[in-house]
Simulated assay, not measured.
Amino acid sequence: MKKQSIGIILAAALGVGSLFGTAIPGADTLFNTALPGTGAFTVQAASNSLGESDSEEEYDPYQDFAASGEFSLVQDEADLLTDEEESLLLDKLQTLTDEYGCEVAVATVESKKGYEMNFFTDHYFDENGYGLGEDYDGILFMVSIGDRKWHITTHGYARTAFNDDGLAYLKDNVEPLLKDEDFYGAFDTYTDLCGDLLEMAANGEPYTEPFSPKWIFISLGIGLVLAFLCTMGMRAQLKSVRPQDSAVDYVRKGSMDVTRSNDIFLYHTVTRTEKPKDDSSSGGSDSDHGGTGGSF
């Protein structure tokens, strides 16, 4: 009988506590009873052990540009190289990086995920910590195999060592190899040429495009055209009689008095030429990066 009385008292206490919205000690969930004057009930969600409500993982706006796996001067996510090729290439890139204090790297991906290739490469460089020193000196050669696109981005001192002429020189030598799908050959050639260009820049003479003999013929052609035009102009001045479009020169002055004249507009012709669109992806995407690129 005594045990039954104790049970009745505990049940009554719990009922009173729920009416006033109290929490049961040790419980994670707080139950609120009906609000005064209403028949509605409110329920407060349980909080976790840290005092925060459960939520989805926060979205990282730069996750599209993050490399998968540990950082390396050879980031072959598209698996275009064998293990041996990757090892050989990594040794050469590391040697260049250590010698000139400018990071020289290669990366491949399956897709640029819908971004412009230069934009994707620049952000890949930034978000994965490429570059050495305060100015993040470095150059990155990126290939997107699924899109058949490639791009080279430069930052810091690399923009001086790999100027526009130097980037054009790299493009002329690596793009044909990419089109032949000789990816190791393209990366190896890129590495060797980077070494040459860095050495020239270190000696105070960054690469400039050598003078081509074709400019001699172009200059001669321009000179001949100008000489022909001048000669024709002088020859025209020697003629005293020329064909006339009207008989005005044969009318005595004052013999005709025109009292009325009209200009009648007949028609006009408008010719429009569409401005050609530039689909080239060569060139850097922002003020911090230089670069060049293309398709293969």
Rank of each mutant, 00 (worst) to 15 (best):
G223Q: 09
D98R: 04
Y59T: 07
Y100P: 00
D126G: 10
P176E: 06
G146H: 04
L93R: 00
Y100C: 05
P36F: 06
S5C: 12
A46T: 10
Q237S: 15
T208W: 08
I24F: 08
A23K: 14
E205L: 11
A186Q: 04
A45D: 08
E99V: 05
G101L: 00
A201T: 05
Y130D: 00
A11I: 12
G101D: 03
L19G: 01
A158T: 06
D165N: 11
A161K: 01
D196P: 00
Y136W: 12
E58A: 14
C194N: 06
A45Y: 02
T292N: 04
D180W: 05
S68K: 12
L193Q: 03
L193D: 04
K179N: 11
G129T: 03
L10V: 13
Y267R: 14
L50E: 13
A23L: 08
S111A: 05
L238A: 15
P36M: 08
G293L: 00
D196E: 13
Q44W: 01
E205H: 11
D122C: 08
G291W: 00
V104Y: 07
S295R: 12
A227N: 06
D286G: 07
H151V: 03
L96F: 06
V251F: 11
M234R: 13
N118Q: 13
A186H: 00
V43A: 15
P276F: 04
T273H: 09
Q63C: 13
L14I: 14
M142N: 07
D196W: 00
S68V: 13
L170W: 04
Y184S: 06
F141L: 13
N128L: 10
D288Q: 08
R235G: 08
G284A: 10
G51T: 02
S49M: 09
F228N: 07
A107C: 07
L73D: 07
A202F: 03
P36D: 07
G133C: 08
D257G: 10
M256R: 15
D137V: 01
Y124N: 03
E175C: 01
K2G: 12
L132R: 07
F228M: 10
K149I: 02
S18F: 10
F217Q: 12
D172M: 11
V104S: 05
E181N: 10
Y130W: 06
A34S: 13
E205D: 15
Q244H: 14
T160F: 08
V143W: 05
K214F: 10
C194K: 07
L30S: 06
V248R: 08
P276V: 06
C194D: 01
V258C: 03
F228I: 05
S212Q: 01
M117L: 04
Q75N: 12
S87N: 06
A46S: 11
